[in-house]
């Protein structure tokens, strides 16, 4: 069902119950966020997508990613209050991951270049977490891939991302989704011509029958074929070679 509501005074429409963040973006409004991805469940961790929502005469500040679109609400994405809180959140994030290039440029794009909380002399609280802002995207991506190889561990300032306590990322298939969604480039992944290293584990690649380049890790192939009900030969060739093969067949048919 379509819901009509207002964003910054403009009447817009979106599917009722969908993510407010997705809805305002689809309608052309800019709202920053670091922990949101359309493909995974909203989580509300980074607090950047704050908006003011008025519903039934009551105004409140809320994250928009995990707020469901409802008819009749009025949303402000860029009020003075929201800008102030957002800038403060960015300062907190910059102090947390000062060396992340992507985060620095993201913050600068939103007008924040320095953090009053930065303590260059102080040792990092958790050296291994340096650069991670605990947005949880990697964990949710892994969970929704159906693997649960990594999790959020501990709590408070000791919170971190990693394999289960005392164990290894046993159920990791080396798909690299966690690496791909990480907004600060914190998750290390190293690919060679034949294998991929991630979470302290090595994964062999399936090499393309056509060009010999890596297609997918063998573990990822097995998982995808089983979960997606794909034919066993689905990953024998890389996407490029499949495409050119198909093009060649079309050319033959056409001639």
């Amino acid at each position: 069902m379509t819901a009509k509501f207002k964003v910054n005074g403009v009447e817009v429409e979106a599917e009722a119950g969908s993510s407010l963040l997705d809805a305002v973006r689809q309608n052309g409004f800019e709202v920053p966020s670091l922990c949101h991805h359309e493909a995974v469940t909203p989580y509300g961790a980074c607090r950047l997508c704050l908006v003011e929502v008025t519903r039934g005469g009551r105004k409140k500040i809320t994250t928009s990613c995990n707020y469901e679109v409802q008819g009749g609400i009025e949303v402000l994405t860029d009020s003075e209050q929201i800008r102030r809180h957002r800038a403060m959140v960015l300062e907190l994030l910059l102090a947390e991951a000062p060396r992340s290039v992507s985060l620095r440029s993201f913050a600068a794009a939103h007008g924040v270049r320095n953090s009053r909380f930065a303590r260059p002399d102080a040792p990092a609280l958790l050296d291994e977490r340096e650069g991670c802002i605990l947005c949880g995207l990697c964990v949710r991506a892994c969970e929704e891939m159906g693997r649960d190889a990594i999790s959020l561990l501990q709590r408070g300032v000791s919170k971190e991302v990693g394999p289960p306590p005392g164990g290894e990322a046993d159920s990791c298939i080396g798909c690299g989704s966690c690496h791909a969604v990480c907004p600060t480039g914190h998750i290390a992944m190293r690919d060679t011509a034949k294998a991929r290293e991630i979470w302290g584990r090595m994964f062999d690649f399936v090499l393309c029958e056509g060009c010999g380049r890596p297609v997918i890790t063998t573990a990822h192939r097995d998982h995808a074929i089983e979960r997606g009900g794909l034919p066993a030969d689905y990953y024998l060739r890389c996407a490029e070679c499949k495409k050119s093969g198909l093009a060649a067949r079309f050319a033959k048919v056409g001639s």
Binding site: A45, R47, L48, V89, E96, L134, R155, G156
Partner: peptide
């Protein structure tokens, strides 16, 4: 230490 650690704020 007792915050769950989810929210940046």
């Amino acid at each position: 230490f007792e915050s769950c650690g989810k929210c940046t704020t």
